[in-house]
Amino acid sequence: MSDNLIEVRNLKQYFNAGKSTEVRAIDDISFTIKRGETFGLVGESGCGKSTTGRTMIRLYDATAGQVLYNGVDVHAPKSKKENHELNRKMQMIFQDPYASLNPRMKVLDIIAEGLDIHGLVKGKTDRKQRVIDLLEIVGLNREHAERYPHEFSGGQRQRIGIARALAVDPEFIIADEPISALDVSIQAQVVNLLKELQVEKGLTYLFIAHDLSMVKYISDRIGVMYFGKLVEMAPADELYRNPMHAYTKSLLSAIPLPDPIYERSRVRHPYNPKDHQYGPDEKVEFREVAPEHFVLCSEKELAEMQATHV
C-alpha cells in the first residue's frame, strides 16, 4: 500500500457545462493526502473548496479527472458492497451547524443514522449505548441523546455532527469549514477535538477553511486555492516561511495577530491576477519550486522564485 490515502488527479467540476451559465468550480486540480495527515485547503469564499470536498466524497459526479481512495477510483462504477464500504470510510463534517442536523430528529437518531444504514448495531440497547459512547467521545453526555438539535449551541451541534461522522468508523474525514460559523472561543474547542480524534483513531483529514489563521495549526500540508485552481501547495511551515504565490502572500497578510506592534505595521497585500503579466505563449503550470513546494507559475516566475527561495 502506498502511503497516499487520497490522490486527486486533474479533477474538474464544471456546473452547467456547455451552457451560458457554466461555472468552472474546479478547474484541473491535483493533490495527494498521505495516510494520517491533515491536508488544509484554503481559499476565499466561492473558489471551489466545498465543491472539491463534495466531489471527492461523491456528492457530485466529476466532470473530468479522478479521485483515488487507496488506489481505487471513487467515481468508477462499483458493486453495492464496495459503494457501501466506501461510504463508511469517507465522511464529512459540514460548515453550517444549523443546517447540518435535521431539526425533526432526535440527536439519538441523528447519530445513529450511519449505524442503522450500515447495520453496525444489534438491537435498541446496543444502538443507544453506541450513541452515548459517541456523545461522550465528543464531550457531550447521555442526557443529550433524547433532545432535538435546536436546543444546542453551534459548538455543540458541530460536535454532534462529528459524532455522526465518527459513528461509522471512517478513515478519512472531509471537514468543510467546520469552525468558520463558530465563535472564536468555541473554534479552538472543536479544532482540539478533531486533533485528539486524529491521534486516537489515526484519521486522515481534508480540512477546508477560508483563511489561513487556524489551518496552520492543524495542517501538515496546505493547498491554496484560487478560482478553481490550486495556486500553491507546500508543507505548512514552508508555506508560512516561504509563501511564493502572490495570492498566498495576500492571504497571509490578512491574518491578524494579537500583537499591537506587529498589527500597527501590518499591511494587507491585495491580490490582483493581472500582476503576473503572463505573456500569451507562457505556460502557466503547477511546478515544484522547492522540494514538496508547488506553485502555479510560468517558467520565468519559476526561475525568479527558485533564486529567492531560502
Binding site: N83, F94, E113, A165
Partner: peptide, 26 residues
Amino acid sequence: SREFVLASRTLGAKDGKIITKHLLPN
C-alpha cells in the same frame, strides 16, 4: 441541498430513506 440531507447521502442513505426521514418530516 441542505447539509443534513448531504450528510445522510454521504452515510450511504438511499433515496427512499432520505425522502421519508429527512424531506417529508420537514
